[in-house]
């Protein structure tokens, strides 16, 4: 299930939803991304997350479909928040279950790597020097190579 939402999420609740009545899966891997107080040489005081409403759901569904084609997965849960966030607020939740841990670990990292490159969200940091759009990082683009995936490009 995929949610793009303004409100916060409860990690314990999300974990329960992945684990309960799921006797065939022996592994649950959950990742949570948080707002850092320092990024790209700025002291950050908060974050605004913009998205392309018509496309985010579609892009995340396509990422989950690709993950399920690569690994045998049980349940997949993605929550991505938008709007105004404060320091240490939760931004993103990715939870994956599978029979064995290898697939759950790999698929969770795969989903985050793809989300970082293909899901239409943009971060604007609020810093002590004023607002500043976050630049895409080459390390996130480089992460695609471990999945033999092409870069996001128009050319």
């Amino acid at each position: 299930m995929i949610s793009v939402q303004f409100q916060d999420f409860d990690f314990g609740h999300e974990y329960q939803q992945l684990a309960v009545n799921n006797s065939q899966d022996g592994a649950v891997v959950c990742f949570v991304g948080l707002v850092r107080d320092y990024n790209q040489a700025h002291s950050v005081t908060g974050l605004h997350l913009e998205h392309y409403p018509g496309m985010t759901q579609k892009a995340l569904e396509s990422i989950v479909a690709e993950a399920k084609s690569r690994w045998s997965l049980g349940r997949v849960r993605i929550i991505h928040r938008v709007g105004d966030l404060g320091i240490s607020d939760q931004i993103v939740f990715v939870g994956v279950t599978s029979r064995h841990r290898e697939a759950a670990f790999a698929a969770n990292q795969f989903i985050m790597d793809y989300l970082k490159n293909f899901a239409p969200f943009w971060k604007k940091e609020l810093t002590i020097d004023g607002p500043c759009w976050v630049a895409a990082q080459t390390k996130d683009q480089a992460a695609l190579t471990r999945w033999q995936a092409p870069q996001a490009t128009m050319t």
Binding site: G33, Y52, N117, F121, W122, A136
Partner: peptide, 26 residues
């Protein structure tokens, strides 16, 4: 129409097009 495409992709009447910088979510 909400799918990333290359610049050679054909455009048809009624399409929704979007341009944006590299994404920075997560």
């Amino acid at each position: 129409n909400q799918t990333l495409v290359s610049s050679e992709h054909r455009l048809l009447d009624g399409d929704e097009v979007a341009f944006f910088p590299p994404v920075t979510g997560g």
